[in-house]
Design a protein around this nucleic acid. Structure first.
Length: 373
RNA sequence: UGGGGUGUCGCCAAGCGGUAAGGCACGGGACUUUGACUCCCGCAUUCGUAGGUUCGAAUCCUGCCACCCCAG
């Protein structure tokens, strides 16, 4: 058992979840130190600095609970370890998931180091996930509230990182979290959940990217190579995307919506298709780097379930290891599996780990102008 | 300047004398610690234009304009 008089550093965002995490830790008798991370220096689209308001909420909740609070700034680390990767991936035509990396590199690395430097026994966060101890090993389990489960974003964490982690609200339902916050008189009780890239927040995504990546407009073409329209730059679109293409009805069309089914970086072409057809689906994928929470793969080849994006229902897959990477074969074809996104593996409620998708095996390969994409 | 055809929301498209379907696009919202997907709501007092017939027209008649096709 952990000594409850010991110090716990809690990452507080100014939202309900971390507020209630603070409440629970405090009630359990821990010596809680609330720390607000400011990892992004700019204002949002409306020119509002939301971090000031969030920090104010951290202050009020901390005061209500009678715990000390501080702020740390990892903006430099965030830019170097997360945002630069984020931009590089988009430039390469992929669609990265910065929040998975943020957990690995910022919250549970830079911030964890900071907490350990303060002699904390553990670093707690308001994530919806559970930890289980089995023979000195820690397992990462889905949250009790499956609709809020955030293990997808935590799948890249190592055993060493999880050994120092605590997720106080992981066993609660979201509604219970709100109820506890309300009963404790926490100002964040009814605060709307925040979304968007963590630390950057909700943005007009295309406009945001345009500030960092130069636009290189080009043609949008269909499977026949016919020009259907113009795109503003390949990095502003992702596989399976519908909105923002601006393609309306056409005399010869089926009346269905158009979707992005591929990118040809060499020729700067965005491949689009009307309706959800086989070209949008894949049978498997390859990931060059996969990490496992346990430290290594359960075996050379194993069956489990996987998610290829947050909040997707688990899909049965067969994983075959190849060195540090693996291939996954899907039981049923999957829609818009996208390079850059993470494939996260589960064995029942246990999150095994995962890695960024590098390549997919198409159900029906796309050929444009004699070239296979 | 002979003949024929067509002009309805940004695009496609119903309507054929009784008071403007639908789809796509777009906008807004919901959902959501990535990007997407999805879902919900909104979106032509007006039918190329000017007159006429009629209780009443986008629908009938006439002129004009535009575009397309066939002949020249």
């Amino acid at each position: 058992m952990m000594d409850r008089t010991k110090k716990i550093v809690l990452g507080m965002s100014g939202g309900v979840d971390s507020s209630v995490a603070a409440l629970l830790l405090k009630e359990q008798g821990y010596d809680v130190l609330a720390v607000y991370m400011k990892n992004w220096e700019e204002q949002d689209d409306e020119g509002v600095c939301t971090s000031a308001a969030d920090y104010e909420d951290v202050r009020r909740v901390s005061d209500t609970l009678g715990i000390p609070y501080y702020t740390v700034n990892f903006a430099q680390e965030y830019r170097d370890r997360v945002f630069s990767y984020f931009l590089a991936e988009y430039s390469a035509g992929r669609t990265p998931n910065p929040d998975v990396l943020c957990n690995c590199e910022i919250k549970f690395r830079a911030f964890l180091d900071f907490a350990m430097g303060l002699d904390a026994a553990a670093l707690a966060t308001g994530h919806y996930a559970r930890l289980e101890e089995t023979g000195g090993q820690r397992r990462l389990l889905r949250a009790a509230d499956l609709s809020k489960d955030q293990t997808y974003f935590l799948a890249g964490l190592s055993q060493a990182q999880l050994q120092k982690a605590m997720f106080p609200i992981g066993a609660l339902q979201k509604r219970e979290v709100r109820r506890l916050a309300e009963h404790a008189g926490l100002v964040t009780a009814k605060k709307k959940d925040s979304t968007g890239i963590c630390f950057i927040g909700e943005r007009n995504f295309k406009r945001f990217l345009m500030q960092y990546l130069p636009a290189t407009p080009g043609d949008m073409v269909d499977l026949n190579g016919s020009v259907i329209g113009r795109h503003d730059g390949l990095m502003y679109y992702t596989l399976g995307q519908r909105r923002g293409l601006g393609i309306g009805g056409m005399a010869m069309g089926s009346g269905e919506s158009w979707f992005v089914i591929g990118k040809d970086l060499d020729r700067n072409l965005l491949i689009v298709q009307q309706g959800e057809r086989e070209e949008l689906y894949s049978l498997g994928l390859r990931a060059e780097k996969v990490s496992f929470v346990a430290g290594n793969a359960p075996s050379k080849s194993f069956a489990c379930t996987a998610k290829f994006r947050y909040r997707q229902t688990d899909q049965p897959v067969r994983v075959t290891m190849h060195g540090a990477g693996c291939t996954m074969d899907f039981e049923t074809p999957q829609r818009a599996v996208t390079p850059g996104q993470w494939a996260v593996l589960y064995d029942g409620d246990v999150c095994l780990g995962g890695g960024p998708i590098d390549e997919t095996r198409a159900l029906r390969p796309i050929r444009i102008g004699g070239r296979t994409l």
